[in-house]
Amino acid sequence: MEELKTILNEIIKDKTGYITFLTGAGISAESGLPTYRSIDGIWIKGTKYHRPEEFGTFKYFSQEPEEVWQYNLFWKKMIAEAQPNAGHLALTEIESLLADRFRLITQNVDGLHQRAGTRKLYEIHGSKQKVRCSNECSEPIDFPENVKFKEYTEDLTPEDIDYLKCTKCGNWLRPNTLWFDESYNEKNYHFDTANHIADHTDILFVIGTSGSTTLPVNIVETVKIRAKWIVIINLENDTYFHSILKGSKKLNSFQESSTVALPQLKIIMEEIINSSIF
């Protein structure tokens, strides 16, 4: 990471734009949460008979709300059992080091970054910790405490169903997450904010994400034009992000896990900030 240290030394001393981190399912996989499309992925485990693009939609939820909630309560159980890992914790320490220059944009909906202590983050795919009325009659609220998490073979109880209805209009509550047939917006998914951050980023770290959704790709494309550097940290070296950045002199790529790379990155930043040169 010597070349990266030189780059960071220059960027940190400049004291101008954001130092931004974009995280995906790969960082949470190291906490035991399966990624979406791998062999043991969350869609396969929870939706045996459906393609993600069919099941993970508002249209399907409108037709089969109990089935979708059954799957989400299984996912909630896995999230509750997971713990932030060394990568999550390193990002929290990096936030303390960088102060106002730190920004974290995450595609993850599990809340592990918050549980690790990170504060300046933007969940562009929403959060499993919140629900909102499917009729959009009110603002998102905390997940109902009385609804118990389940194995994916367990059915909802009548009590679960009651607590998963909007107290204002009586319609089903829905997970406060972005589905495949929905569009990004600022209100629920920080669309404008994420693009603003990209426009003002000096270096972007892309961690544990392959580039399968549009807003993260747009962020990388924007930063590619404006920023000094993009750093990919991923166990795979053939993601879509690698392909769109191929040949770019701004790209640094590390085929490494986030639990190894991010603590090392934290140490580098700490050394730069504490050095007499800085």
Rank of each mutant, 00 (worst) to 15 (best):
T20N: 11
P216W: 02
V220I: 07
D100G: 12
K128D: 09
F58K: 06
G208E: 02
V231L: 07
H196N: 13
E270N: 14
S127Y: 10
P263N: 12
I39T: 10
W172R: 05
N185F: 07
L251W: 10
P158G: 12
G87W: 05
V217Y: 03
E159W: 09
E159L: 14
K15R: 13
E221G: 00
H50N: 03
T177H: 04
T57R: 01
K130H: 09
Y240S: 08
L164S: 03
V147G: 00
S276G: 09
N195R: 13
L33A: 07
L235V: 11
F61I: 04
K150N: 05
V260Q: 13
T201V: 10
E3H: 08
T193I: 13
A90G: 11
E54I: 03
N108E: 06
Q70T: 10
L251Y: 10
T16C: 12
L262H: 05
P216V: 02
D162F: 15
L235R: 13
R51A: 07
L73T: 01
T259C: 11
I267C: 04
G170E: 05
V68C: 05
R174M: 10
S127R: 15
L265F: 06
I44S: 06
K148G: 00
N188D: 15
N72V: 04
D192W: 09
T16Q: 15
G247T: 11
V260H: 12
N108C: 01
I42Y: 00
R101S: 12
K246L: 13
I203D: 04
I267D: 14
L215D: 01
N195S: 05
S275Q: 11
T118A: 15
T16H: 15
V131K: 04
S96N: 15
I225C: 02
T201H: 07
V147D: 00
L178T: 03
V68K: 00
E271G: 10
N234G: 05
Y184D: 03
H113P: 13
E256R: 08
K228C: 04
T214M: 09
D181Q: 00
W75M: 14
P65G: 02
I203W: 06
N171A: 14
Y240T: 08
H113V: 14
V147F: 02
Q114K: 15
D192P: 00
G111F: 08
H196W: 10
D202Y: 02
L121F: 15
K130A: 04
T201N: 10
H196I: 08
L245G: 04
I12M: 03
R119E: 15
G87E: 05
